[in-house]
Design a protein around this nucleic acid. Sequence first.
RNA 1: GCGACUAUAGUUCAAUGGUAGAACACUGGUUUGUGGUACCAGGUACGAGGGUCCGAUUCCCUCUAGUCGCCCCA
Length: 459
Amino acid sequence: MPRKNVKVEASQKSASKEALPKKKLKNPIVLQNPRGMKDILPGDQGYWTQVRRVLESSYQKYGFQRIDIPVLEYANLFSRSIGEDTDIMDKEVYSFKTKGGDEVALRPEFTAGIARSYIQHGMNVLPKPVKLFSIGQAYRYDRPQEGRYREFWQANFDIFGEEDSILDAEVMQLAYRVLGNLKLKDIQFQVNSIGCTDCRKSYLSLLVSYFKSKNKKLCKDCKRRLGTNPLRILDCKEDKCIQVSSGAPQTVDHLCEDCHEHFKSLLEYLDELEIPYSINPSLVRGLDYYSRTVFEIWSLAEGKRLSLGGGGRYDKLIENLGGEPTPSIGFGLGLDRIVMEMKRTNAKQYEAPKPRIFLAQLGKLAKRKSLKLFADLEKNGILVAESFGRGGLKSQLRTANKLGVDITLIVGQKEALDETVIVKNMVSGTQETVAKEKLLPLIKKIMKSKLVVLKYNNK
RNA sequence: GCGACUAUAGUUCAAUGGUAGAACACUGGUUUGUGGUACCAGGUACGAGGGUCCGAUUCCCUCUAGUCGCCCCA
């Protein structure tokens, strides 16, 4: 969608109407969002509320507790956990120095911060597993596109303290349920196991010697990766690298006995749960802290492939950050993309309750009394729409009509003096004058009846 | 970080080297205190800066933002 720059000159309003030479401001306010940042406008909130509601009920049903952590962390928390030689750390992290000289960064994902909090607050003493849910913004300095923003929303689930692969399956089932409850279809999991640190050692040496033998066919990034992070070559999207990778030894074939068993049982759980998945040997993910299970959640609707989320097991992360050994697993969901998919498929939105009554007022005295009447109705749980700022009855009724209310209450000068209210049926157009004390029972009675269906102005 | 395209009212779109129109939306009116339709009226825009030109929204450059592809991922 096209955007525009709008500059507001502070002096503009006071400037006379005579043609003045345009003043150039030194520091004009640019009414435009910074790159990759977007507003979630009221018109879209129905989708977002729906997502939040589904998440809210899901995390509770699966025994998670909510945690909120800061958007800002010390930068080395991320470099230590995510890995120095990853794209995220390389070019996507928003980091800067504070006035006090601290190196800080906006979180590019949640798990690092949550792991920090877990250790810092001694959650290791809690009964295991510790299940934590979080939702909020994360930041990556990247080229924006639809569904990819520099500020984006994630929901994050982490489970600490259990090694069993049933937790891996549980977490995937949870993700699948959430997306299912949001009515998203064509969801498929991509699954892989990259092994533990032990079996990865021998695998890596195999992999390196393989890639060294094909060194000349790799792209320049991958030649570098060969020395720094050979696993990531498998993830490269360059045609020639894909070709080389296709003949490379696969992690799945070189897992140690424990890891093999772990992966095998995970797949059995997934089969049992009838969760659609596909084993993807080239899936290694962009964060170094993963071990064993890694997965991504793809939407395959309309032949397109869109990643809605991903996660995996990070058995060594807590230990690496200074905690006690704590096998863990987690995943994140990209909410912007989920909303995008919901819009595309016309998925259900949350609908706020709509008022069925409009309160119109005419004249000073009535206006004064109307606000009180509004409060009396609101106290009784009756939702009332109004446009108190307007004087004309015509425009108020027009508004009432647009809102599609069933009843309009009219209080004019006469009614205000008589302590009465006109109750106008917006469907039939008929109206009657009611004494104030009889108003509430009458409205309650009307609210209970579901007869009002046929709208007068139903197009 | 690399490449391509785009940028006009709140929205969706026009036109034009001599400063811009429509539709929808919005506000008000078509007699005094009554909404669906109709009619009338009104306001708001050339993303920013620089250059070429007598003159640029229109041509050129830079910047900014958006969209798409790559990279990466959410």
